[in-house]
Structure formats: C-alpha cells, structure tokens
C-alpha cells in the first residue's frame, strides 16, 4: 500500500470492513462508543501498559490504521479474564475480538514474530490438537526452547524449582515426554479439524471477495 492510499484510507470503512469480514466478532468493533471501560478494566493494562488498549484499537480500526493495529503487540496481552466483556456498556465481546485480531494478524503474517504469547498460543494449540489432549511437559519445554537450545536450558534452569515442586507433588510426570495422555481417535480429530479449517477458509475468502 502506498503512502498516498494509506492517507486516503484514513477514517474510511476499508479496514473496518476487513476486520468485520476476517475477525471473529469483528462486526462489533463499530459499536464501541469510546467510554474506555475495557481499557480501565484490563488487568495487564494496569500492571504493564498495553501500547493500545482495546477501545483505542477499535478507534484505530475505524480510523483505518491498518499497519499499526495488525503489528501491535497489544492484543497479545489479553489474559482472557473477561473483565472487559462484563463491564462493556455496549455488550461488545471484547475478549473475543482481541483474540480475533491477534489471530488475524498472525494468520496474515503481520503479528510480531518475537511476541512470546503469540508463540505460546501457537504452541498450545498444536500441542493439544496433536493428540487431542494437552501434554503439559512438552508444552513447557517447547516454550523454554523457543529461543534456541542454550536459552532453553537457561529458561529451564530458572524454572527448575517450580518443576521440581510439581514433580514432587505428583503433578508433573517426566514420562509425559515419551507419550503421555492422548485421545484414542486422533485420526478422527485431525480429519475433523482439517475440515473445520477448510470450511472457515472458504467462508472468509468468500467474504473478502464480497
């Protein structure tokens, strides 16, 4: 997109429409009245500020700030606590929209590559859909080793006391590394998910085409 078209798109519906078509619950973005209760309700926003809190993201979408929104780290801060949802005077499903924007940014490759929660989110989904059930050990190790082996060992060592505590309490089984819990009908699950992805892809493409 050239700089000129970017200017021309400001405060136009283009990006809003894109979000409505591609993002789960994206058609709610236009309903925001900028009261800010979501931004004020977000726990991570208070512990360590989001770059753009939800209500501001919504305004940015309406103002056509496509790049800034999709490359933002903000929505990846969502802890899914649902505070914003229950307080929103417009009943906007903000949590889902945050997830949805993040998913879309990730899908089209705009999401910040180094964002830890993005990495973990992907890892988690792959982990749980692989066998149908979560393998907590592999999940943790996957996270620790995301930045390479050396960093992984460091991360692992930092978390050593936590892991030992859990192992002692019988809540982390080292043997999970070699198999662990799984569903019987893994094949069926994979086929089912593949189909779901396919349907969703077709639907979103159709929306994009208008």
């Amino acid at each position: 997109m050239s700089a000129n078209t970017a200017v021309a798109d400001k405060y136009r519906n283009n990006f809003l429409k894109e979000i409505e078509e591609q993002v789960e619950m994206g058609d709610w973005v236009k309903m925001c009245m900028q009261c800010g209760v979501c931004s004020g309700s977000c726990p991570t926003n208070f512990q360590s500020a989001w770059e753009h809190p939800p209500q501001e993201l919504f305004m940015m979408i309406r103002a056509g700030k496509r790049e800034e929104v999709l490359t933002s780290t903000s929505m990846w801060n969502c802890t899914s606590c649902y505070n914003c949802i229950v307080r929103c005077p417009r009943k906007i499903p903000i949590t889902h929209i945050m997830h949805g924007i993040a998913e879309y940014a990730h899908r089209i490759g705009k999401a910040p590559k180094m964002q830890a929660t993005r990495f973990f989110s992907v890892l988690f989904w792959k982990n749980c859909t692989n066998t149908g059930r979560v393998n907590e050990l592999k999940l943790s190790l996957g996270l620790y080793f995301k930045d390479g082996f050396v960093q992984g060992v460091k991360n692992g060592l930092a978390m050593q006391s936590v892991a030992i505590g859990l192992i002692k309490a019988g809540r982390l089984n080292p043997l999970e590394l070699f198999g662990g819990h799984k569903c019987k009908d893994q094949k069926g699950i994979q086929a089912m998910l593949a189909k779901a992805y396919e349907i969703e892809r077709v639907r979103k493409a159709a929306k994009m085409a208008g």
Binding site: E103, W125, A196
Partner: peptide, 10 residues
C-alpha cells in the same frame, strides 16, 4: 490461549 492458531470453527 489457543486462539492464535485455532480460528473460530476449529
């Protein structure tokens, strides 16, 4: 937390 990869329907 699975949202990034999950999509809605899956």
């Amino acid at each position: 937390i699975g949202y990034a990869e999950a999509g809605e329907l899956p």
